[in-house]
């Protein structure tokens, strides 16, 4: 019940922000109807597969995001330099990285963080090992020393 309420409220806020109609009663009631239908469908889908992914925003996650943004900016500049350099000193590697996160959500956050950072892309996932393509040796080394993985594990994603 609480779940439905939270979802309904966030959907209503989303609808208001996207449409920008705050006054017309006809449009507001249509919006409310669509929120109710969506919540009903989502609850039905919940019953079917029983998997809920809750959105969580707390200080450790925000700290991780800020760290990730800085990493992404640094990696972007590195790769941009590489592309613009006349010689293009590539040394591509395929490395295997262990995912130490206990939960699926943690593993997904880790894999997506790797991919989101230019210079490294998660190419395949076997159980708890990622196959990662790195554009230079240095990028591959930066990944295998496991700093990012430790940070994701420390998030304690459920």
């Amino acid at each position: 019940m609480l779940h439905a309420l939270v979802m309904g409220t966030s959907l209503a806020v989303f609808w208001l922000l996207l449409s920008g109609y705050f006054t017309s009663s006809l449009l507001l009631s249509l919006g409310a109807l669509s929120v109710v239908v969506t919540v009903y469908l989502a609850l039905r889908a919940d019953k079917h597969d029983g998997e809920r992914v809750a959105l969580r925003v707390d200080p450790p996650l925000v700290r991780y995001w800020i760290w990730l943004v800085i990493e992404i900016v640094k990696a972007n500049i590195d790769v941009a330099k590489l592309i613009l350099s006349p010689t293009m000193a590539l040394s591509p590697r395929m490395v295997r990285v262990k995912a130490t996160q206990p939960t699926d959500v943690g593993v997904v956050i880790y894999a997506n963080s790797i991919t989101l950072t230019p210079g490294t892309v998660t190419v395949d996932i076997d159980d708890d090992e990622f196959v990662v393509h790195a554009i230079t040796q240095a990028m591959a080394d930066g990944l295998t020393d496991g700093d990012m993985g430790d940070r994701v594990t420390a998030l304690g994603a459920r």
Binding site: L90, P92, P118, V121, I135
Partner: peptide, 18 residues
């Protein structure tokens, strides 16, 4: 400019993120 598909992935990443 980059030589193959896997390295081009990283270039596409620059556009998509920063």
């Amino acid at each position: 400019r980059l030589p193959d598909f896997y390295t081009r992935l990283h270039a596409a990443g620059i556009t998509d993120t920063l």
